[in-house]
Simulated assay, not measured.
Amino acid sequence: MSSNRERNDSKRPKGKNRPEKNAGRPHAPEQQRPRQAENAPKPQSFQKSKVNDDGWLWGVHAVEAALKNVNRQGPLKLYLSEERTKTIAPALLNRSGLRVSTLMMPDIARMLPQGAVHQGIALHGPVLEGVGLESIMEGGDGVILMLDQVTDPQNIGAIFRSAAAFGVQGLVMQDRHSPPLQGVLAKTAAGAADRVPFARVTNLSRSLELLGENGYVSVGLAGEGEFNLHTLLAQQGWGISLKKLVLVLGSEGEGLRRLVAEHCDHLARIPMPGGFESLNVSHAASISLYEALARTP
């Protein structure tokens, strides 16, 4: 015999007073989220800055060296924090085509790429164009450093810094595969980009031919070099009978290209008794310059 409860349940219309299938479960997110117009503007806090480093230098050493460089073309815009205005040398501000503004530190940061360590000083203006290869050769005897498709701005900045420290005659880069001397490159160079003469050339092989015609001996740094660099320089009489030298370094990944290597007078290696296969190109440049200039007889 059926109970009263069973009889009452049987009389309820189907579909009424029954819990929904998904009752007690959260709705899917798309059902809770209000629909937004397709072209509705994003909230201001989600808009990303499009600031880049075009024409910008920042950091004390990079900017002060730029202001001292009479070959830099204007107009130039200098931005200083209140604290930096008290420490900058007044003589640096006495040049034509320079406009100076004082801003708060966060305001300077907003004009620069994210993470730029500006130290309360930034400069905006035309990028350095460099000089001709002939101008570098006119500097007299010494070492010229050539970079074969080295593209990393921090590596090139570090190489400029080493070049300035060891007193190289000049630096040669391929025009199409070298970043402009600004931003991170200039910050890493710590002012050396405005002190070391540099040339951008179209063809490195032709440039090596021209350097050879003017009495330079070129040495390409490569792991397959027959002699280590120190031995080769001694054999060539560097610093005694040989007074003009070109050191050629290859790119971070591929090293010297075949045609560039073939146009070098010699290939030499840096001994690595630790057994590691290669060095960062900026470290290789420093070691090579030490061998050529700090150990010159």
Rank of each mutant, 00 (worst) to 15 (best):
N155Y: 06
L80N: 10
V131H: 04
A37Y: 04
R35F: 10
P106D: 15
Q169R: 14
L67I: 14
G74H: 05
S135N: 12
K50I: 07
K50L: 09
V70Y: 05
Q149V: 14
P153L: 10
I136C: 03
P153M: 09
G139P: 07
A165R: 03
V51S: 04
Q119V: 03
E82C: 05
R99C: 06
D141V: 12
L112I: 11
L76P: 07
P75A: 01
Q154G: 13
N39P: 00
T87A: 08
L67P: 08
R161G: 01
Q36C: 12
F160Q: 01
D53L: 06
K42H: 14
F46T: 14
D54A: 14
Q154W: 04
W58H: 11
R72V: 10
G55K: 12
R33A: 15
A163M: 09
W56M: 05
M111A: 13
P43T: 10
L133W: 02
K77R: 15
G120Y: 01
S101H: 15
R33E: 14
K68P: 04
F160V: 03
F46C: 01
A66F: 07
D141E: 13
H118A: 06
I88V: 15
E129N: 04
L145F: 08
P106W: 01
L76W: 00
Q44S: 13
T102G: 02
R99S: 15
R110P: 01
L92W: 04
Q169S: 14
L92H: 02
L171S: 04
M111R: 15
N155F: 01
S81W: 01
M105A: 07
H118F: 09
M111W: 11
S162Q: 08
A165M: 05
R95Y: 11
K77D: 08
D107W: 03
A40W: 05
N71H: 14
N94L: 13
A165H: 05
A66E: 09
P113S: 03
S45Q: 14
A40M: 11
M111P: 06
G120N: 02
Q119H: 06
N94Y: 03
G115Y: 03
A91R: 13
V131Y: 02
A109Q: 13
L133F: 03
R99P: 00
P41I: 14
L112Y: 01
G157A: 04
P75Y: 01
A116D: 01
L57H: 11
S45W: 14
E64V: 04
P106Q: 07
E83H: 09
